[in-house]
């Protein structure tokens, strides 16, 4: 083999590749390791020496700092979970349905509709924020989860992805035979099309979940009742002076916000990587 001939050079190069990869891996992991370790150390330990790989014994003390303060991880967790789960369910279900209309039916406005979806894709989130904010105040949907969940039904990026996935994988023959068996269109979609889309739905579910979980801007201006706060809002408040002094508690709070994401990620990392790839190949 050609590779073997210049094995000296190529071994050297391989080692170089590994070194770079390992450095990058450390770069990815280090901040989180510091965060995890410091979550267990007291504020004075952290001030004396911010980097340490030996866990301290102040985890509980740090946790107690949250007592009665506006950082309430469990409330934030539940609120974020409700919003993220509902919004993800909406996104996945309705995006698949919308994609289905684009793939399975011939209707006059289809082209225009698809163009519209592509245009919506372009609208930056912050652009509509001012109108959205004024509008939500007018209709009294402040402090409600509705404006954070319902808009998820119209998720152009997900529709686009679903369409790209559905085009080659949905066979119209199956749909036809179901029709001949007398199945209604809605039932065909729910019973036949949805199961076919499982892999695409799984990956999009993860993206949508992560995106909703991490959303800050709109929740920040809409959820003013602190009982309704999501996790990222609470994290953003950590910069407030109340916690500035409690470094251990800040790190612990950060850990608590990312922990659910870590769990989801490492359980589903296979789908995530595959999902990103899926999006790339099809476009």
């Amino acid at each position: 083999m050609a590779a073997r001939k210049r094995s000296g050079l190529s071994t050297g190069f391989t080692i170089f590749q590994y070194i770079i990869c390992i450095i990058l891996a450390i770069l990815s992991l280090l901040p989180f390791i510091i965060m995890l370790v410091n979550a267990t150390r007291s504020s004075s330990e952290i001030q004396a020496n911010a980097i340490s790989f030996i866990p301290g014994k102040s985890l509980l003390t740090n946790y107690k700092v949250f007592d009665g303060k506006s950082f309430n991880p469990w409330t934030g967790f539940i609120n974020s979970a409700i919003i993220s789960v509902c919004a993800t369910a909406c996104t996945i279900y309705f995006s698949t349905l919308t994609a289905y209309t684009l793939v399975a039916y011939d209707w006059k406005a289809k082209k225009a509709f698809f163009a519209l979806i592509m245009c919506v894709l372009m609208i930056p989130g912050q652009v509509t924020a001012i109108g959205f904010y004024q509008f939500m105040y007018k209709v009294g949907l402040v402090n409600s989860f509705i404006p954070l969940i319902l808009p998820a039904i119209a998720a152009p990026a997900t529709v686009f992805f679903m369409r790209q996935y559905m085009l080659p994988s949905l066979s119209m023959e199956i749909v036809q035979s179901a029709r001949i068996d007398g199945a209604g269109e809605f039932r065909i979609f729910n019973q036949i099309v949805l199961p076919l889309m499982k892999p695409a739905m799984a990956t999009q579910a993860i993206f949508s979940f992560v995106a909703t979980w991490n959303a800050l801007f709109i929740p920040l201006i809409l959820l003013i009742d602190r009982k309704k706060w999501t996790m990222p809002i609470m994290v953003a408040q950590l910069q407030g002076d109340m916690y500035k002094t409690e470094y251990g508690a800040v790190y612990l709070a950060l850990v608590m916000t990312v922990l659910p994401l870590f769990v989801v990620y490492f359980l589903l990392s296979k789908y995530i990587i595959a999902g990103v790839a899926l999006g790339g190949v099809k476009e």
Binding site: A25, P232, V235, I272
Partner: peptide, 18 residues
């Protein structure tokens, strides 16, 4: 490596900034 390189992407921007 892929899993680790991608990881920062899933973390809340607010968390990362702070």
């Amino acid at each position: 490596f892929k899993v680790v390189f991608y990881m920062p992407n899933i973390i809340t921007a607010a968390t990362i900034a702070i």
